[in-house]
Each structure stands twice: as structure tokens, then as C-alpha cells.
Design a protein around this nucleic acid. Structure first.
Lengths: 108, 108
DNA sequence: TTGACATGAAACCAAAAGGTGTCATATAAT
DNA sequence: ATTATATGACACCTTTTGGTTTCATGTCAA
């Protein structure tokens, strides 16, 4: 499940700050490429490439409407990130994990 | 808070599969460089570079013990990832988000 | 039908990423 | 003292990344 179709996975996709900005932009709003690229100091083509990488990771979906291609956010692949994170969550410094470590404790 | 000291942040640090493996290896175990690199098909030097990147992101801490340098996991920076993820969590496919989207809906 | 948009595709580029091998240095061990 | 170990520091190489510019194509508007 969640087999990454392309060569880009979700970890790589969100590594770039611009791509994270794009995702935030698409929150609640389906947007065409030019509207998206209007928010960045880089060329439309560069934004288009970022969008393709996000699409490969499944984080956005495209829909062609007339002469424009509209992109929308797809959060489902973030589940993988969530579960990855979940593995380390028990080591965090908070009441619950502190309790856990106390109970399970066998360290120095 | 969590100001990234070096040029590598946590998003970039976890983008690489090898580095994620290193983090998993260090779970519960402080390890010297050679012991870590023994788990990978790449050279010790390469592993060392990965460790430096992880250290820049604050995900590992080093401690010199005699002639070896031991690394241990530091999960605190993952909090940033967690809160980033948290922003999108409300859009996931579950009862609550479905209800939200129904209420706020103004799409075709 | 003639332009004006919106986008994708291709060729190209500089810099960063991920590796390698070699060498220097500090610390054990004999 | 001498040798072996553990690691960091360099120099170097190849591929990937993030960008650019230019050109082709499809679609909407006059």
C-alpha cells in the first residue's frame, strides 16, 4: 500500500520549501498553474516542475479545464509521513512519553 | 525556537532514505560511526557525511568517547514536522473532515 | 480566422547531493 | 616505542536538482 508510483516519494516532495509553499497555497483552493506561479519569484516552468514532483508523490491532483490545468491538494500521502513520525513520537519529551519511559524503563 | 543552525533543516534531513535508516538504527542505541556504517553498503566517509547533516538538523547529537564518536538520536526537531503535518491533518479522509468539507462546501 | 492565453516539452546550466579514495591525527593496545 | 583503530578532512567525480529560455500546441476571444 502507498507504493510510490513515480521516483519521488512524499519525503522528497516536501523537502523543498517552495513545494511546501505550493501545498499551503492549494489549501482549500484548486488553482491553475499561472495563478500558483504568480506567488513565487521563479518562472512558471519551474513551478510546473515542482507541481509534477508533487503529483508524482500523490500530494496534488490535476484536472484539465479548458486551456488551463487546475491543481488541488491531496493530503492522503501525508499519512505515510504521519505513521513514520508516529514511530518516534514515544521518545518525545512530554508527560505521556515520560510516563511510558518510566514504566518501560530499563535504561541507566 | 527551532531555528535551523546550519543550512540543513529537518525536512531535508529526512528526505534521504539512508538517513532515515540511520535514525531508526539509533533508536535506543548510542552508536559509534563505524558501527553505524557497518549497516550500510556505502563507505564510512559517506555515512559520516549523513551524520553531519542529521546533526545540523539537530536529529542526532555526538559525544566523543576516547577515539570514537558516538551518536544518539534526538527526536525533538521532529516536533516541527509534527506541527507542519498537523496543519493538514484536518483535511484527511475521516468523518470529521468530511463533515467540514460538506459544511464549508462551495465547489461545483 | 486571427490573435492572445495557458501549458507542456526540450535543451541547457550551475550548484548541490551523494559517493569515493587518500591522508592526517588522535587514541588504544602490545 | 610501535602498531592498529576510529574518525575527520580533503580533493575529486557523477548524478540530481532547481532554474532558465525557447518553441510547439491547444483553447478561448474578437
Amino acid at each position: 500500500m502507498a507504493l510510490p508510483s513515480g521516483k519521488h516519494d512524499v519525503f522528497q516532495a516536501i523537502a523543498d520549501p517552495t513545494r511546501r509553499e505550493v501545498l499551503k497555497l492549494l489549501t482549500d483552493h484548486e488553482m491553475p498553474v499561472s495563478a500558483i506561479s504568480g506567488h513565487f519569484p521563479i518562472t512558471r516552468t519551474a513551478v510546473s516542475k515542482h507541481l509534477r514532483i508533487l503529483a508524482e508523490a500523490g500530494l496534488v491532483k490535476e484536472r484539465k479545464v479548458g486551456r488551463e490545468t487546475r491543481y488541488r491538494l491531496e493530503t492522503q500521502p501525508l499519512q505515510e509521513l504521519k505513521s513514520w513520525l508516529n514511530y518516534y513520537e514515544r521518545y518525545w519529551e512530554n508527560k505521556l512519553s515520560a510516563l511510558q519511559r518510566f514504566v518501560e524503563s530499563d535504561e541507566e
